[in-house]
Design a binder for these strands. Structure first.
Length: 848
RNA sequence: GCGGGCGUGGUGGAAUUGGUAGACGCGCGGGAUUCAAAAUCCCGUUCCGCAAGGAGUGUGGGUUCGAUUCCCACCGCCCGCACCA
């Protein structure tokens, strides 16, 4: 064996061998138990970043481990290839989105290959290719036929200069990111998927997802937002009726005003002939569209002059148009109870409206003033007529019963979840397969004519949607009446692409989206791994899409991902250089960020060399998510070139628990590189002919096998790594013996999923075949149990001594040993213990 | 603003889920080897204290024989908020 392990040679050699032997191709016909391991597929931005490396390394370790445990493993990879960055590149660099995307895919695929992932590349797919999105169009038509697709008017961010719809992230302080124009809200007729039809099942289905993180289930539950409340109508002073929805019917006696959304019909009518009202509505439209912006914005309102009759007190409540009321939720109108809702409180304070207490801790507390904020908590009703003294829950029921008996309102379930708007007024997406005909209306494209292919000849030099202004593409004959008609020029949200790709991986027939038999074999995904940022949208949409396909009988499964793991981000420290004022040479207060390869480390200080080759001190900034704008990025390719694929893979798995953030460090990756070499030297000491037994080492070996398996299955890679270090330390120090050779061989198999190149190289040197085809080492359960344990001896809960005893010693014996202990005797000084607590094999606590 | 999460030595973290806090890694200090360096190996490394001993898991309270773990309040940081993926 060579002195040093040479990753540059070994990595590419073994990657070639795995490719040639098709080691990681999933066999659909296999009789082995199956395992589908999937990581969220990447957007082909151009380069793999460290976050991808972390994500795919975790999946790879699990996939390789499962193979060693005798499973037929499906571990595929593809590309989430539609989306805005390709169009931005087209506008900024004059390249075609398709060419740009495909080139990025080629580059990133080469990068992934250099990391040695055990992927089945024969199933690779890219969502931007017609043989993917054509099937998506077919599925969309199936959902349309099932009544799950419809059109309605919906507001978008409109940039009047660029003549385009902007994504929320493209709107900065109310202005278009490129044009700087004030963004307007504009209503467009758009396509929607009826996810709300599935609200109840998506909510209930969460209970069955016991291998999902609790936090993700809670977030989805809150997102779906089932609420029970009261819907009732106010009689308005102009004779109209105004329906409102409230979840706090118990606080109805505290209602001091009524508020409607800016786009509510009542607001629209109020604006007719009223310049000020119209101005206020325009102001609301000009503000941000996101929920976060609406809720953090100052509460503003406009008094319509109308009043609403309170159903119990008969009081006339003013009706406001308010910027914090959402048209999409409930009825778009609310009864406002300032005492017990913070938004209403802020509003009432600003406009001098009454704030009445109707919930208090007790009846004595009924007139306690508020201390600057609303009290949304529990209590009993006060100042509330017939509700006085009731609990919040009882009062809710009583008001609803009263309303239903009186015929002026009813109990109602309302969902926060809204239907999914899938229309995008963009080129680089799946064309929506519909045709608009002057005679027949909206007509689906016949399936035989699919795919509706994106035209390649598009022009990004002028503003607007290139698909809509393409000279010929949209002009077609109506499939129904053959008269000239127009194609739909909206494309589908890219979340649709990622809502079924995991089904397409199981089989890729040319004539249909998937083969149900293959889905029955492989799905659900046994382990899905990706970022927490997808906790709600992607994962909820994929769940919905799966259920929708199940409902129309295309597949059997209802939940796509049996187990979910959300990994943390990769972070890095930032380097901030303060600009000096060019005139005075003084610090200017402005800073710029430096990249890791622009700085120089001396001890724990960091410097930058200026043009005169002088060292300028650099401030080490916060450790944050790697991002180009902060320049705290490292390129995986450079790391692989310097340290090898195994070192970076090992770094990704070491130290930080996978669900938490992983701080990148130069020292850390160097340590990983050293460990690869250290293992190589140890593997070189393997001696098949060694004899002699080392019982302690045998025990350590088998304990490590069992623990590492448990850790990997729970995705606790950092713990598995720590165990492997321990066994390495022990094996290195042990004298040569058959046991030591067995430990070394075991160690090689344990690291095989994590450092596959090193493992192959050493396995070959030991005269074996491919470690990619090797089995996980067996262990003897009898060896796992220690026969001696060290117990703690405490007095009043404080550790005073420890003692090694036989495992399983009974309570009386342990107590006797502890009481007789010198240190215990010294503290007791003759007194008898008040109480003794004995936990066998753990501790004895003496209460003095 | 609303929803979700996290907080342990210089540093990343571990702790059979209420039972010996700091496993293992990084860094640092000392030593060996070397003409020298790199690499490698050995020893040490929570804090205060010469020691005996004491303190200690973001802060403040509580429950318990015993709390990193459970409860309450607060502080700080992170993620999501429906057209980024």
């Amino acid at each position: 064996m060579n002195e040093r392990f040479d990753p540059a040679r070994a990595d590419s050699h073994w990657q070639k061998v795995w490719d040639e032997k098709q080691c990681f191709r999933a066999d659909d016909a296999s009789s082995k138990p199956r395992s589908y391991v999937l990581e969220m597929f990447p957007y082909p931005s151009g380069r793999i970043h460290i976050g991808h490396v972390r994500n795919y390394t975790m999946g790879d370790v699990l996939a390789r481990y499962k193979r060693m445990r005798g499973f037929e493993v499906l571990h595929p990879m593809g590309w989430d290839a539609f989306g805005m960055p390709a169009e931005n590149a087209a506008m900024e660099q004059g390249v075609h989105p398709g060419g740009w995307t495909r080139e990025n895919i080629a580059n990133m695929k080469a990068q992934l290959k250099r990391l040695g992932f055990a992927l089945d590349w024969s199933r690779e797919l890219a969502t931007c290719e017609p043989d993917y999105y054509g099937h998506e169009q077919a599925l969309f038509l199936d959902l349309y036929a099932a009544g799950l697709v419809y059109r309605k008017e919906s507001a978008v961010n409109w940039d009047p200069i660029d003549q385009t719809v902007l994504a929320n992230e493209q709107v900065i302080d109310g202005r278009g990111w490129r044009s700087g124009a004030l963004v307007e809200k504009r209503k467009l007729s758009q396509w929607f998927l009826k996810i709300t039809d599935f609200a109840e099942e998506l909510l209930e289905g969460l209970d069955s997802l016991d291998k999902w993180p609790e936090k993700v289930r809670t977030m989805q539950e809150n997102w779906i937002g089932k609420s029970q409340g009261l819907e009732f109508s106010f009689d308005l002073s102009n004779g109209d009726r105004l329906p409102v929805y409230t979840t706090r019917a118990d606080t109805i006696f505290g209602a001091s005003f009524v508020a409607v959304a800016a786009d509510h019909p009542v607001a629209q009518r109020a604006a007719q002939g009223n310049v000020e009202a119209q101005a206020f509505i325009d102001l609301c439209k000009a503000s941000g569209t996101t929920a976060a912006e609406l809720e953090t914005a100052e509460k503003l309102g406009f008094d319509t002059g109308l009043t609403a009759k309170h159903p119990f007190t008969g009081a006339d409540l003013p009706v406001y148009i308010a910027n914090f009321v959402l048209m999409e939720y409930g009825t778009g109108a609310i009864m406002a109870v300032p005492g017990h809702d913070q938004r209403d409180f802020d509003f009432a304070t600003k406009y001098g409206l009454p704030i009445q207490r109707v919930i208090a801790a007790s009846a004595d507390d009924a007139d306690r003033p508020f201390t600057g904020e609303a009290e949304a908590g529990d209590g009993i009703c006060v100042n509330s007529g017939f509700l006085d003294g009731m609990s919040v829950d009882d009062a809710k029921a009583a008001v609803i019963a009263h309303a239903e008996a009186g015929g002026w309102g009813e109990g109602k379930t309302v969902w926060r979840l809204r239907d999914w708007g899938v229309s995008r007024q963009r080129y680089w997406g799946t064309p929506i397969p519909f045709i608009h005909c002057g005679t027949c209306g909206v007509v689906p494209v016949p399936k035989a004519q699919l795919p509706v292919v994106l035209p390649e000849d598009v022009d990004f030099s002028v503003p607007g949607n290139p698909l809509a202004r393409h000279p010929t593409w949209k002009h077609v004959d109506c499939p129904a009446c053959s008269k000239p008609a127009m194609r739909e020029t909206d494309t589908l949200d890219t979340f649709v692409n990622s809502s079924w790709y995991f089904l397409r991986f199981a089989s890729q027939p040319g004539d249909r989206p998937f083969d149900p038999a293959a889905i029955a074999k492989w799905l659900p995904v046994e382990q899905y791994i990706g970022g927490i940022e997808h906790a709600i949208l992607h994962l909820l949409y994929a769940r919905f899409w799966t259920r929708a396909l199940a409902r129309i009988g295309m597949i059997e499964i209802k939940e796509p991902f049996a187990s979910l793991f959300t990994q943390g981000m990769v972070t890095h420290e930032t380097y901030e250089l303060e600009y000096l004022d060019p005139l005075t040479g003084e610090k200017s207060g402005k800073t710029t960020y430096l990249a890791p390869d622009e700085i120089e480390r001396v001890g724990d200080k960091v410097y930058w060399r200026n043009l005169k080759n002088e060292r300028v001190p650099v401030k080490i900034g916060r450790v944050i998510k790697m991002s180009k704008s902060k320049k705290n990025v490292v390129d995986p390719d450079e790391i692989v070139a310097t340290y090898g694929a195994d070192a970076i893979r090992w770094f990704m798995l070491s130290d930080s628990p996978p669900e938490r953030d992983l701080p990148w460090s130069e020292a850390g990756i160097e340590g990983c590189g050293r460990f690869v070499q250290r293992l190589w030297r140890l593997f070189g000491q393997y001696d098949a002919a060694a004899t002699g037994e080392d019982k302690a080492l045998d025990r350590k070996r088998d304990q490590t096998i069992a623990a590492a398996a448990e850790d990997i299955e729970a995705l606790g890679f950092n713990k598995a790594v720590a165990r492997i270090y321990e066994l390495t330390n022990t094996a290195e120090k042990a004298a040569p013996s058959a046991s030591r050779s067995a430990a070394i061989r075991t160690l090689l198999l344990l690291v095989a999923p994590m450092m596959p190149h090193l493992a192959e190289e050493a396995w070959q040197a030991m005269g074996e075949g491919l470690v990619a085809e090797a089995a996980w080492p067996p262990f003897d359960p009898a060896l796992l149990v220690e026969d001696e344990v060290t117990i703690a001896i405490q007095v009043n809960g404080k550790l005073r001594d420890t003692q090694t005893v036989a495992k399983g010693m009974d309570k009386a014996e342990l107590e006797a040993i502890a009481v007789a202990n010198n240190k215990v005797q010294a503290i007791l000084s003759g007194a008898a213990p008040k109480k003794v607590i004995v936990v066998p094999d753990r501790l004895v606590n003496i209460v003095a």
